[in-house]
Design a protein around this nucleic acid. Structure first.
Lengths: 147, 147
DNA sequence: ATTCTATTGAAAATTATTTTCAGTAAAGGG
DNA sequence: CCCTTTACTGAAAATAATTTTCAATAGAAT
């Protein structure tokens, strides 16, 4: 029951270990915006025990390969998200963050034509090969707006 | 020779201290994407000595007031930028980051009509009051693309 | 099976940032 | 202008997420 993330690690030359399989399997099941610590607790409750060090190491490898994304929403710890297309459904999305309570909302945008155009322009102008992007909007959520 | 940032702090009820004046004055002169540590060293070389603790405290206040912006470009430390309009010139811009060497390029985009439209849509949909946004593109710079 | 070496867990280290605390200095009333 | 109040500062200690070290283990290849 190999999974796509594990396959990708294998292709990159990483060894296929039990710990990495546990971690990559769990990424589909844990909360969508998870922290290293949160994943650690999730695994403790369920399958097996994987050390935090190994979790950090695996998340780091997956991040470098761009299979997951690492975000800083100002909480003092990073949150991670899967960055793979799920079947034929593109999981690409952006974030709306409440600057007061930290509430996080995902949104999709139909923005990509413009972004692609922008990426192309910048590509030429600065000789950059653009591979990804992030858009984050900040504001006050319904709750926090009332004061 | 009060400056706008100091004025803003004063209005918010912060005391007008020598240290805060030194810091807010220097933000116009230090490198545009500065770190707390970098600002500290900048001040050591020039005017006066302000402690790192005070620098962190002041940057934190300015960030909360949205007079500066705090970015995580994956270096293990934050970078800050002024977030005020400079005369009649809007300093708003976005970032292009090399995922390999960390090279950072600012760019402006003529993107805002679409962004405003998006913001409005999300505002209604999620009852958010949107006050700011960040767009970051990731890729490989000219140097790093060759391998 | 054996060898080689990447990987793991536990503990120690790292390091940016925050907090503590005693001394200092704004701000405002008299 | 002096006095009182209390926010502010610097230095040092604390915090806490993440990384590294290191000895033991287990993939992978021959």
């Amino acid at each position: 029951m190999a999974n796509r993330l594990m396959d990708a690690l294998g292709i990159k030359g990483y060894r296929v270990t039990l710990e990495r399989s546990i971690i990559t399997d769990s990424l589909q099941k844990v909360e969508p915006h998870f922290t290293a610590e949160g994943l650690y607790r999730f695994l403790q409750k369920r399958r097996s025990r994987v050390s935090l060090a190994t979790i950090y190491r695996t998340l780091s490898a997956l991040t470098q390969m761009r299979l997951i994304k690492k975000f800083d929403f100002g909480e003092g710890t990073y949150r991670y998200e899967l960055n793979i297309t799920n079947g034929n459904k593109d999981t690409h999305h952006h974030h709306l963050v409440c600057v007061k309570c930290g509430k996080l909302i995902d949104f999709e945008s139909d923005f990509f034509p413009q972004l692609n155009h922008l990426a192309e322009k910048l590509s030429q102008e600065h000789r950059f090969i653009i591979i990804d992007h992030e858009l984050t909007l900040f504001g006050y959520c319904k709750q926090c707006a009332s004061d």
